[in-house]
């Protein structure tokens, strides 16, 4: 069933377009004047002024790895983040934790963990999929570098950004 939309009947003033035009000019002029009088401030002068303190809790910045209270690296390199990562920014090489290590019972850890920040789209899927609560999106957003190599965050850099995070579920406790 086609819907018939009736064309509105325009008055003469509307037809000659002039009042509407004037109205438009008035609106834009109003905005211009308000900005000129500094009654309204919208733009922030970025590098000098930053919004950092007002970033919301759920803000998604650079992904990073975290260690727990006992300085254990939480990542066990299950590679689920590598799998889920839509732009394929993550590359993990797993290794076995050698005998004698304090956390040998965890058995597995990443030998290398690279996130290519040129590819990362900050979607947060890695954080969502992580079964070990090891990867989190931090509030860092100004990720810059002068070479491609510099933009690949390796394991050390990721732990540097992520730091220690307490109060997470401790799966590898004494009972385990």
């Amino acid at each position: 069933m086609p819907i018939v939309v009736k064309r509105p009947r325009l008055t003469l003033a509307e037809k000659c377009y002039f009042p509407a035009l004037m109205k438009g000019l008035r609106i834009t002029l109003g905005h211009a004047i308000r900005i000129l009088q500094r009654k309204k401030k919208v733009t922030m002068q970025y590098p000098e002024v930053k919004w950092d303190d007002n970033l919301p809790e759920h803000y998604r910045g650079a992904p990073a790895l975290v260690t727990d209270e006992h300085d254990r690296e939480r990542c066990v390199s299950c590679q689920l983040c590598e799998f889920i990562c839509p732009p394929r920014a993550i590359k993990i090489v797993p290794e076995e934790i050698p005998p004698g290590d304090e956390w040998q019972k965890v058995e597995k850890r990443p030998e290398s963990f690279d996130i290519d920040m040129l590819r990362c789209i900050y979607c947060g899927m890695c954080q969502e999929v992580c079964p070990e609560q090891a990867i989190f999106l931090r509030k860092d957003y100004a990720i810059t570098g002068v070479s491609r190599e510099e933009m690949i965050h390796d394991k050390q850099k990721l732990y540097e950004i992520g730091g220690k995070r307490e109060g997470l579920i401790n799966k590898w406790n004494k009972l385990k």
Partner: peptide
């Protein structure tokens, strides 16, 4: 500049 102030920009 004018387009910017009209659009509440800088």
């Amino acid at each position: 500049r004018v387009s910017a102030i009209i659009q509440d920009r800088v």
